[in-house]
Each structure stands twice: as structure tokens, then as C-alpha cells.
Measured scan of single mutants.
Amino acid sequence: AIERGSKVKILRKESYWYGDVGTVASIDKSGIIYPVIVRFNKVNYNGFSGSAGGLNTNNFAEHELEVV
């Protein structure tokens, strides 16, 4: 089962992080479509409006993740 702290591989082909491994930061139990927040070591794009980097978290559905 996917739980907080799990290392997961991203299976969503259109994702910037496809094939990468991230760490589960949290799981939303409220029934939303993409409840699993995954944190990565790298950012997906340069930040804007003065922020240092881009996003390094993204929401995924459990079926888009594979525990490694």
C-alpha cells in the first residue's frame, strides 16, 4: 500500500516526472481524484515572481504510482 514516506515511481506518461521516483508527502483521504502528494528532489520548471525554484511536489492518483 502507498503511505506517507513511501518511495514511488511515477507512471503518468504526460507528467514531467514520468519514470522518476519521489517520496509520498501526504495522502488526502477526502475522496479527491488525485489524493497522493509526491515530493521530488528536483523542480519541474524555473520559478516565477521571484521564487527560487519551481514546484517539487505534485498530486497523483494511486494508480499512477508504483511503490519501489
Rank of each mutant, 00 (worst) to 15 (best):
K29T: 13
I27R: 01
N46V: 06
I33Q: 14
G50T: 07
A1K: 13
V38H: 00
Y18L: 01
E62C: 14
K9M: 04
I33M: 11
L55H: 08
W17G: 00
Y45I: 15
S6K: 09
V68P: 02
G53W: 02
E3F: 07
N46T: 05
E3G: 10
A1H: 11
K29C: 14
S51Q: 11
I37G: 04
N59E: 08
K29G: 10
P35L: 15
R12Q: 05
A52Q: 12
Y18Q: 00
G19A: 06
V36F: 14
K13C: 14
V43T: 11
L55S: 14
V68A: 05
V67F: 06
G54F: 08
E64N: 01
N58E: 15
D20K: 09
S30E: 09
L65G: 00
E66C: 10
N58K: 05
Y34C: 13
G47I: 04
N59K: 07
N58Y: 10
E3C: 15
G54K: 04
G54D: 08
L55F: 12
E66R: 07
R39G: 05
I2W: 01
K7I: 11
W17N: 02
F40H: 03
K7D: 04
K42N: 12
V24G: 00
E64Q: 01
V36L: 04
G19T: 04
L11E: 02
H63V: 12
N59R: 09
F60Q: 00
K42L: 05
G5K: 02
F40Y: 02
G50E: 15
G5I: 03
I37H: 10
A61S: 06
N44S: 11
D20E: 12
I2L: 08
E14H: 05
E62T: 10
G53K: 08
S15W: 03
R39M: 13
N44T: 04
V36M: 03
D28H: 04
E14W: 05
G22T: 02
G5F: 03
S51N: 10
I27C: 07
V21M: 05
F40P: 03
G5Q: 02
L55C: 15
V38M: 00
D28A: 07
V24D: 00
R12K: 07
T57L: 05
G31W: 09
D20M: 09
G19K: 04
K29N: 12
R4K: 13
T57A: 08
R12E: 04
N44I: 14
S51I: 10
H63E: 10
T23I: 14
L11Q: 05
Y34G: 06
V8Y: 00
P35W: 14
K13L: 12
V67H: 04
A52W: 09
F60S: 00
R39P: 00
G31L: 11
S6L: 10
W17I: 00
K13I: 13
E3Q: 13
F40N: 03
S51H: 08
N46K: 03
S6I: 09
E3S: 13
I33D: 11
S15R: 00
G5W: 02
I2Y: 02
N58F: 09
E14S: 11
I2S: 02
V67C: 05
W17A: 01
D20G: 06
E66M: 09
N41Y: 06
V68Q: 08
Y45Q: 15
Y16I: 06
G19I: 13
Y45L: 15
F60L: 02
G22V: 08
G47P: 12
S26A: 12
N46Q: 09
V38D: 02
G50M: 03
N46A: 04
D28Q: 07
E62N: 08
T57N: 05
G54W: 07
A52E: 14
I27M: 06
R12N: 07
N41Q: 12
G5A: 02
G53C: 15
K9C: 14
S51R: 01
G31N: 14
S30L: 07
E64Y: 03
L65V: 06
V8M: 00
V36A: 00
G22Y: 06
K42P: 11
V67E: 04
I2G: 02
S30Q: 07
N56S: 10
G22F: 06
K9S: 02
G53S: 11
K29F: 13
E64V: 03
G54M: 06
N59A: 13
D28F: 03
A61Y: 07
E3H: 08
D28R: 04
S30M: 05
V68C: 13
L11F: 01
I33A: 12
S49A: 12
G50D: 14
V24A: 01
A61R: 02
S49L: 13
E62L: 12
A25I: 15
N56E: 10
S26K: 10
G19E: 07
K29I: 08
F48E: 15
V24C: 07
N41K: 14
V67A: 06
V43R: 05
N58A: 15
V43L: 07
G19H: 05
G53Y: 03
